[in-house]
Amino acid sequence: MPEDPEVNQNRFGTGVGNNTQRRLGNVNDQSKCACSCGCITAEDPRFAELKSYIDSLNQEQGITMPVLQEAQRSFGYLPLEVQKFISENTGVPLAEIYGVATFYSQFAIEPKGRHHIGVCMGTACYVKGSQKVLDKLVEELKVKVGCTTSDGKFTLEATRCLGCCGLAPCIMIDDDVFGKLDDVSRIPDILGKYE
């Protein structure tokens, strides 16, 4: 039997569809508009900077990537207002911009936490128990993998090999490496070091 269709379910703003649920399944505060109305206003000086960056590029094909990269660097993420602004100022349809922004993992649609946690899931770390590390972080932070804590402090991600297999299992928080985490009870203390 086919599943019952989901009609206009999981609407975000007015959004519908599978990916909305995927993208928003983790947002603790569902009442908050995830397109971040109010967080970034039109008067934000970063828009003017982005505009002059766009103007500095020749209006030729293929400017979407550099403009999105600049916006990601400047705003830290690419909410609706920012993508709309880019669309209006480049003439590239919003759907195309959104398509690019959701294709590459270097772009974020939702704000990232102040601190980025990367849990190494490379072979060595995995064999040495990085799944337990990840599970512990999920439990401590009450957040799903790929998501940001409701207080905006941490973003939790699983990554590929971090290149320090001798320290397996290991994680990185921002630029700091924490290795040999066989004893996951150390994790709350590590997290406590970050504001």
Partner: peptide, 21 residues
């Protein structure tokens, strides 16, 4: 340009930006 490929892999969906209706 209302529609485009969004997301990637198995999740790829031809949809408007931000899953708007």
């Amino acid at each position: 340009g209302v529609l485009d490929f969004t997301h990637r892999g198995f999740q790829t969906e031809v949809a408007p930006a931000f899953d708007f209706s």
